[in-house]
Simulated assay, not measured.
Amino acid sequence: MKKKILILIITLSFLNCKKTQQDNGKLNIVTTTTMITDLVTNIGGNYINVQGLMGSGVDPHLYKASEGDVTKLVNADIIFYNGLHLEGKLVEVFEKMQSQTKTRIALAEEIDKNTLIGSEYFASNYDPHVWFNITYFKQFAKKVTQTLSEKDPENAAHYIENEKEYLSKLDRLQQKIKTTIDTLPIEKRILVTAHDAFNYFGKNYGFEVVGLQGLSTATEAGVKDVQKLAAFIIDKKVKAIFVESSVPKRTIEALQAAVNSKGHEVVIGGTLYSDALGNAGTVEGTYIGMFEYNVNTIVNALK
């Protein structure tokens, strides 16, 4: 029934939608995840209107479009989204928009597939959490700049300058987090979280990453999963495990209880930002701030 209602909403929106976004001569941009919203805002600056569909703490794996979201998408000049089936519930909406004459950019689809981590959990067959590879995020920035410049050549110079400045910030971020991670011995680089959002991070910085729920939060962790991971934590003498801001913490708390019941003490090392940034206006509410916060939290807890 919900599926039929959604299809009806989409159809009616296409037929009867009136422009509700700002019409101030600027490009109207709609983004999905908070990471992409932050990126596009940095590149576009004051020369575009940006509306992000998802907010802090929102899980993109389970996100469903509302009627208001559909209206925003229909009225957008450009839609930037992650792709690789991260926004699984929005795929149907995007498919309904195939006939619309608008620009839709799946940023992760621009990455060389030979470099991606495979995954059987997603229709794309790849792990979509690519923003945890900063080099990939730089590619995102270049694609956003290219797209904005093509659509709005009058302000292309501003977009290019903003990109240059943002890429410099990402360069500094890479150097800073490498210095921090280098203080953590290799044998202690075991990252246990609610779900496998950190595989690209682990690949880049030498962490063994284990997620209780697998790559997608749409899959539920069972008792056997908890017991198996508890045994792994005890065997590896892991000191800390982590909850995620966009995933209910009850599963990690159950894992902690299972480990502690067997005589091995493990603490919850903190909350990591995985599929969504922190609250707007905070350090963690930006991509750069989120990444640095996560690294500091992980290293401090595992030392």
Rank of each mutant, 00 (worst) to 15 (best):
K2A: 14
L6V: 07
L8S: 13
I9A: 14
T11N: 14
C17I: 09
T20E: 15
N24P: 05
G25Q: 06
K26V: 02
T31C: 02
D38M: 01
L39C: 04
N46F: 06
V50W: 13
M54Y: 06
G57S: 05
G57R: 06
D59E: 05
G68N: 15
D69W: 10
D69H: 13
K72H: 14
Y81T: 10
N82E: 09
H85A: 07
L86Q: 01
L90Q: 09
V91Q: 14
V93D: 06
V93H: 11
K96P: 09
M97G: 09
T101S: 15
L107C: 00
L107Q: 02
A108R: 02
I111M: 01
N114R: 07
T115Q: 14
L116D: 00
I117Y: 04
F122E: 01
N125G: 11
N125D: 08
D127M: 05
P128H: 13
F132D: 04
Y136R: 03
F137H: 03
Q139A: 10
Q139S: 06
K143Q: 09
K143Y: 03
V144M: 06
T145W: 09
T147Q: 03
L148W: 05
S149E: 12
E150H: 12
K151Y: 14
E154R: 06
Y159R: 00
E163G: 08
D171R: 04
D182I: 05
E187C: 10
I190V: 10
L191W: 05
H195Q: 12
D196I: 02
A197P: 11
F201N: 00
F201A: 01
F201R: 02
K203T: 05
F207V: 02
V209N: 11
T217V: 10
T219H: 14
V223F: 14
D225H: 13
K228L: 11
K228D: 14
A230C: 08
K239A: 12
F242Q: 00
V243D: 03
S245M: 03
V247D: 01
K249G: 08
L255P: 04
L255A: 08
L255Q: 01
Q256C: 07
A258W: 11
V259Q: 02
V259N: 02
N260I: 05
S261I: 03
H264P: 08
E265Y: 09
V267F: 10
G270N: 02
T271F: 08
S274I: 02
A276R: 00
A276Y: 01
N279G: 10
E284R: 02
G285P: 04
G289A: 00
G289N: 00
F291M: 15
V299S: 07
